[in-house]
């Protein structure tokens, strides 16, 4: 389990369409600014969120996102949970390889998003959906 205490209520957003992916970016940006992440860190987190929200939509068949401000006693951060009840990822190592894709994209979504955040957790398996949790801490 990742360290850190939730501050306040998570903000939720459904991911059911293209426009929802845009809304996820805007929500994450707002929370990242409030958590005082630097401009570069905001940009990295919003970019990672955009990739993961698109994955939730395209591969998971839609789902939800929850954005929470967290505090580990020393630093503030933003944690985002993406959840879908789609087919899940059978071979996670392969899915995390740069350039691997089953959807005709560039294959950078999952692997690239992992590089852009400080903490990355994924819970998935064939038939059990996918839950991805990412955290970015203010420096």
């Amino acid at each position: 389990m990742t360290a850190g205490v939730d501050l306040g209520h998570p903000q939720a957003q459904a991911i059911q369409s293209d426009e929802d992916v845009v809304r996820v970016r805007q929500l994450v940006r707002t929370v990242a600014v409030a958590a005082k992440l630097s401009l570069v860190d905001q940009t990295k987190l919003v970019t990672a969120a955009s990739e993961l929200a698109r994955n939730t939509l395209v591969y998971g068949g839609g789902g939800t996102v929850e954005v929470t401000t967290v505090d580990n006693g020393r630093r503030r951060g933003v944690r985002i949970l993406f959840a879908d009840s789609g087919p899940g990822i059978v071979d996670l190592d392969l899915a995390l390889t740069d350039g691997y894709t089953t959807g005709g994209g560039l294959g950078l979504g999952l692997s690239g998003a992992r590089r852009l955040v400080d903490e990355f957790e994924i819970d998935t398996g064939a038939g059990k959906g996918t839950r991805v949790t990412v955290t970015k801490w203010a420096r």
């Binding site: 570069v40 990295k44 970019t47 560039l106 950078l108 690239g112 998003a113 590089r115 852009l116």
Partner: peptide, 13 residues
């Protein structure tokens, strides 16, 4: 933007 360039490179694009 500079932050976009930094992020793009880290993303692997």
């Amino acid at each position: 933007r500079p932050a976009v360039a930094i992020t793009l490179v880290e993303l692997g694009l």
